[in-house]
Design a binder for these strands. Structure first.
Lengths: 235, 235
DNA sequence: CACCCCGATTGATGCACGTCAATGCCGGTT
DNA sequence: AACCGGCATTGACGTGCATCAATCGGGGTG
C-alpha cells in the first residue's frame, strides 16, 4: 500500500506561470472527484497546441494520458523546452494573467481542462487546497533550478545521461514500463530541452552506445549500465 | 500614487524550493506589519551563508537591504546561480522539507528571518495570504523559465545584454539609481549565473564596450545605447 | 612602504559543439 | 510501386567558448 501511494504520488513537471506537479494526486479522493467533474476530458491529437505563450490563461490543465511539452520560444527558430508533462502533472494552475510558455502534445493525449473561474470557485470553498497548489509549484521550481544547472554547467554527454536517468525515474514513479525506456519525444525536442542541436544529441547518444552504456532502439533506449554508473562515467 | 504603488510592487527573484518575489509587498499594511513582528531583522556581513543546499528548511527569509545570491552546486567547482534576490524578495516561503539551493549574501545585507512554524501559524489564520505565496512562487517560476531560455539558447553576448537590461529593470522597480548601473556581484557570479566562464564574461563586456554599447566602470556599467537597442545589436 | 592576495583583464591555444551537407529510413499519399 | 516529406544519422568543417597562463590593479596587513 505504501507502494500504491507512491505510485499515485506524482512527478515533477514544469510549466508556465505555475503549472504544477502531480497536483491532482495531492488532493483527497472526494475533492479530486468533485474537481474533475467540474472540468472536461478532451482527447487531443499529436502536436496539438493546448495553449500558446502570451495568450490569456483562461483554463487550467492536467495531463491524463500522453506527454505534453512546455516550451518558450523567440522567433521561429529558437525554442527552449522547459519541461515535459506526464500523466498526473498539472499545467498553469498558478498562472497569473497570461501563459508564459506554450504547451504542445507529443503524440495523442488525453487532457483534463477546467475554466480558471471554476477552479478558483472550487478552491474558494476549500482553502486548504492552496497548499497543494503551492507544493506543486514549488516542485516545478526546484525542477527548473535543476534543469538550469544542467543547461549551464553540464557538457553534452552528461546532459544526455542525466536526462535519461531522470526521465526513467519519472516514468517509474507513475508506474510505466521503462525496460526499454520509451522516448516519445523527437530528437529535436530532446535537443531543445537540453540546449543542444539535433546532431549533437544523435552523436552523443551514439557515443554512449559505442561505449556500451546504452542501446538505441526505435523510439526507445535501453540502459545497459546502472543509472548512477551512467552519470559517473561522464565525469 | 500609481507611481507609489508601482514602486512598492516588486521584483522577480528566484529561489530555492519556493522563495518568492516581492512576497511581502503583496500583503496589506496590517498583515505585513504583524508578520514582520513575528520574525527578526538580522544584519549580515559579506559572503555569509543564509542557508545551504540540502539543509532542513527551518526558516523563511526576506531581503531588506543588499543582494543575496541563490545557487545550486555540485562538488566544489561547478556552481549554477539560479537568481539574485533584491530587497523585497522572499526566499524559501514555499520550501517543503529541505533547501534545494544555497543562499549567500553579496556584500553586507539586512535580512528578515522567521521560523517556518511561526509563518505557518500566521498563515493559518489568514488563508488568503496563500494567494500571495502562490503569485510569488509563480513569478519565480516564470523567471526561471526565462533564464533557462538564456542558458540554453543565447550566445554569450546576448546573455550579457539580457542580463544587464533585466538587472536594470529590477533595480528600477525597487527605486534604485541605475545611472550608471551598479553590479555588486563579482564577474564569477555573473559567469555562474549565465553559464559562462569568468574570462568570457570579461571579454564579452570588453567587446560591448569597444562597440560603444556600454562603458565599464569599477563596480558599475553605464549603458550607452537603449536597452532594447543593446539586445537587438546582438542578434 | 613592501608584501600579498584576490579579482579583473587579456592573450594564446585547443576542443566541444554548432553549422552545413549528404544519406538513409519510414510512413503516408497517389 | 513510385513518390514524397519529415525525422534520424553520419561526416566534414568552422567557430565560440573553455582552458591555461600571464599581467595588472587595488585593498588589507605586516
Amino acid at each position: 500500500m505504501t507502494q500504491q501511494m507512491a505510485a499515485s504520488s506524482f512527478v515533477p513537471c514544469t510549466t508556465a506561470t505555475g503549472p504544477s506537479t502531480g497536483f491532482l494526486s495531492r488532493l483527497n479522493f472526494n475533492d479530486r472527484r468533485q474537481l474533475m467533474a467540474l472540468g472536461e476530458r478532451v482527447p487531443r491529437g499529436a502536436n496539438e497546441v493546448l495553449f500558446a505563450q502570451g495568450a490569456p490563461a483562461a483554463r487550467c490543465f492536467s495531463v491524463i494520458e500522453g506527454v505534453v511539452c512546455l516550451s518558450r520560444s523567440i522567433g521561429d527558430n529558437r525554442r527552449q523546452i522547459v519541461g515535459f508533462a506526464l500523466p498526473g502533472d498539472a499545467l498553469e494552475i498558478a498562472a497569473q494573467q497570461r501563459h508564459e510558455v506554450s504547451a504542445t502534445t507529443i503524440g495523442p493525449a488525453l487532457v483534463w481542462e477546467i475554466a480558471r473561474e471554476s477552479f478558483a470557485q472550487f478552491v474558494s470553498h476549500r482553502p486548504y487546497v492552496l497548499h497543494a497548489v503551492i507544493a506543486s509549484v514549488a516542485t516545478d521550481l526546484t525542477d527548473a533550478h535543476e534543469q538550469m544547472f544542467s543547461l549551464g554547467r553540464r557538457p553534452a554527454e552528461e546532459k544526455l545521461a542525466s536526462f535519461l536517468t531522470e526521465w526513467r525515474e519519472r516514468l517509474l514513479r507513475i508506474g510505466k514500463d521503462v525496460e526499454p525506456l520509451p522516448l516519445p519525444m523527437s530528437r529535436r525536442d530532446i535537443a531543445d530541452y537540453l540546449g543542444l542541436t539535433v546532431e549533437t544529441v544523435c552523436r552523443t547518444l551514439a557515443k554512449l552506445e559505442r561505449r556500451g552504456a546504452i542501446e538505441i532502439l526505435p523510439g526507445r533506449v535501453r540502459l545497459i549500465v546502472e543509472p548512477d554508473e551512467l552519470l559517473r562515467s561522464c565525469a
